[in-house]
Simulated assay, not measured.
Amino acid sequence: MWTKLAFFLLLLPTTAVSFTKDCVDPTNGSSLWFNFYETVCPAAEAIIFAGVVRAVSAEPRMAASLLRLHFHDCFVNASSKFEGCDASLLLDDTDRFVGEKTAAPNVNSVRGFDVIDGIKAELEAACPGAVSCADVLAVAARDAVLLLGGPTWQVETGRKDGLMANKSAAESNIPAPTSGLSALTQKFRNVGLTQKDMVVLSGAHTIGKARCATFSSRFGASSSGSSDRRFLDSLQQLCGSGTNDTLAALDLVTPSTFDNQYYVNLLSGDGLLPSDQALMDANAGEVEGLVAAYAADVDAFFRDFGEAMVRMGRLAAPPGRGGEVRRCCRVVNA
């Protein structure tokens, strides 16, 4: 796998997705900037990239896991105390709070904590106390997408790590795999993201896997044709022969490639999760149009995905809310 990945890296584009000025300039009062570590830890992004390369070369599925970590971390945005991309997801339980790792959307879903721990240890050895765990998540998510053939983009950095975690906020804020279109749209609007952001970020499901328990409700869904029915029957056979923990690829066609096949699948009725196929609901309107556009134009999907990831990465607590650069991502500093 390493040889194949090294060869693939030589073929990767060297230019990032370009952004308009309003996308680049932070507008939420946060202190996020491109090249934040240029002087305090010049090797930061190279260290993170090397760690992601090692992890993905050993297990390609880890790319989707690292992307999911960033997404699930950023969506915990319940109040002024627990907001946004602050690496709260990485905190272990303490006698002060129950962490987010065991929240319903995360248990048996999020993984890759050891990968982040390893990268953070290398960063601490090179630049003690400089690089936040929240920034590691953001940069690692970008690098994971790139390694499976997806776009790259500049990541704004300078986040602080949160001092608390909130299990109940994770359970109420992170979109459920059984969500319908209106619920999905509202979850994204609750954190300041648009319906278009919801559609393009859902395209992350072009990689990764899900447990049967998360999509078993699809088995009884009405089908739009024989192809759709065969797809649902194959899923039911897979899950019927195993347990709720049996895994299926979110994109059965190109499961280890970050591309626009996810949207092609939706047009055929072959979205794995109920929340995926919900984008093609009868009343989807503009959402259905976006799905068709991304299915037809991978470059448009890549461009919009990079821009949406930057916007999601800006979900953060208001200035002055506090935070730190953790020495270990699992615990706050003593």
Score class of each variant (00 low, 15 high):
residue 1 M to F: 02
residue 3 T to K: 12
residue 4 K to F: 04
residue 6 A to T: 08
residue 9 L to T: 05
residue 10 L to Y: 03
residue 11 L to F: 04
residue 12 L to Y: 02
residue 13 P to G: 03
residue 14 T to Q: 14
residue 20 T to H: 08
residue 22 D to M: 08
residue 23 C to D: 14
residue 24 V to P: 00
residue 28 N to P: 00
residue 32 L to T: 00
residue 34 F to V: 15
residue 35 N to F: 10
residue 38 E to V: 10
residue 43 A to F: 01
residue 44 A to Y: 03
residue 49 F to T: 13
residue 51 G to W: 05
residue 56 V to W: 01
residue 57 S to P: 01
residue 66 L to Y: 04
residue 66 L to F: 01
residue 66 L to H: 00
residue 67 L to D: 00
residue 67 L to T: 02
residue 69 L to C: 05
residue 74 C to K: 06
residue 77 N to C: 09
residue 77 N to G: 03
residue 79 S to G: 12
residue 83 E to N: 09
residue 85 C to Y: 00
residue 86 D to A: 14
residue 88 S to W: 09
residue 88 S to Y: 06
residue 93 D to L: 04
residue 93 D to F: 02
residue 97 F to I: 11
residue 98 V to Q: 01
residue 99 G to R: 09
residue 99 G to S: 12
residue 103 A to I: 00
residue 107 V to K: 12
residue 110 V to W: 03
residue 117 D to T: 02
residue 117 D to H: 03
residue 119 I to R: 01
residue 122 E to T: 07
residue 123 L to W: 04
residue 124 E to I: 05
residue 129 G to D: 04
residue 141 A to E: 09
residue 144 A to M: 03
residue 151 P to N: 06
residue 151 P to H: 01
residue 152 T to A: 15
residue 156 E to F: 00
residue 157 T to L: 14
residue 167 K to E: 03
residue 167 K to C: 02
residue 168 S to Y: 04
residue 170 A to H: 01
residue 170 A to V: 01
residue 174 I to L: 04
residue 175 P to L: 03
residue 175 P to Y: 04
residue 176 A to V: 07
residue 177 P to T: 04
residue 178 T to Q: 07
residue 187 K to W: 05
residue 191 V to T: 06
residue 193 L to H: 11
residue 194 T to I: 14
residue 195 Q to C: 12
residue 196 K to T: 08
residue 197 D to T: 08
residue 200 V to L: 13
residue 202 S to Y: 11
residue 202 S to E: 14
residue 206 T to G: 07
residue 210 A to Q: 08
residue 211 R to T: 01
residue 211 R to G: 03
residue 213 A to M: 13
residue 214 T to F: 07
residue 215 F to Y: 14
residue 216 S to V: 09
residue 219 F to D: 13
residue 219 F to V: 07
residue 220 G to R: 09
residue 221 A to M: 11
residue 221 A to R: 15
residue 223 S to T: 13
residue 226 S to L: 08
residue 227 S to Y: 09
residue 228 D to R: 11
residue 238 L to M: 09
residue 241 S to E: 10
residue 244 N to R: 11
residue 245 D to V: 02
residue 245 D to L: 05
residue 253 V to G: 03
residue 254 T to Q: 12
residue 254 T to D: 13
residue 256 S to I: 03
residue 257 T to H: 15
residue 259 D to R: 09
residue 259 D to I: 09
residue 263 Y to K: 08
residue 265 N to K: 08
residue 270 D to A: 11
residue 283 N to L: 02
residue 287 V to R: 13
residue 288 E to N: 14
residue 289 G to I: 08
residue 294 Y to R: 13
residue 294 Y to T: 13
residue 295 A to S: 10
residue 300 A to K: 13
residue 301 F to Q: 10
residue 302 F to T: 02
residue 304 D to V: 08
residue 305 F to N: 12
residue 305 F to C: 05
residue 307 E to C: 06
residue 311 R to D: 15
residue 312 M to P: 05
residue 318 P to T: 00
residue 327 R to W: 04
residue 328 C to A: 07
residue 333 N to Q: 04
